[in-house]
Amino acid sequence: MRRFNWLYIPAGLTYLFLYLPIVVLVIMSFNAADTPYRWDGFDTAWYGRLFADRAVREGLINTLVVATGATALSAVLGTLLAVGLARHTRSKLLDAIAVAPAVLPDIVLAIGLLAFYTAVQFTLGLHSILLAHAVFGTAFVAAVVRTRLAHVDGSLEEASRDLGATAPQTFVRITLPSLAPGIVAGALLAFSLSIDEFVIAFFTAGPQDPTLPIVIYSMVRFGVTPEINALATLLLAVSFTFVIAAQRLSRLTESF
């Protein structure tokens, strides 16, 4: 008989620890009671309440607007930056600047941007969150694209140049397509980080249009509970679907 592997204990604890709260949330989302401390039977009413909640809906829309805009901006800036850092400079300083947003504690960037927006009298709103999210988005896209660049064969670009293509032509026709998977991966990362980002949004949002995490924060703080469980379950379902889709997709591409 195989000896018992004691590693299963901490590993099992890890998974228990990670999933216990989530299981509770999912179960509670179907609780008829209006408090999480009592079970009144199975009910889907909280989902109805959730869909009818204007603040949640608007928060979701705001979040998607911010994430989409910030991702688009980050994808462009980050890709160029990655190419520039890999091919056009050896500056350690520029390298450091490009990674900084990913290492900086979010609260530091948040207060910095708040101070900056205030100093230049910039009205806060969705655009101010979008611009803030593009800061770390750019850093993450650049990081992902750079790892991709390391695996891209430079000879194609050279061939293109030798055949008389200009630098921009080479960039658009050769470099970009070969970087596409990296750009997509980086953009997805930037998008998912933006969707979940709370601290920077909290500091740089205007009073009129909160993103979903800000809405959730106030729901949690004000203790109105079961709707959050329903929201959590839905978010979980969405990310689960995404994961499975991504798995399928990567398996599909691997088979080529």
């Binding site: 989530i22 509770v24 709370f198 959050i228 929201l231 959590a232």
Partner: peptide
């Protein structure tokens, strides 16, 4: 996976 549900909701779960 748990990382992809909202950070605040995960925290809230612990309150419950």
């Amino acid at each position: 996976l748990p990382f992809w549900t909202n950070f605040l909701i995960r925290t809230y779960a612990w309150i419950i």
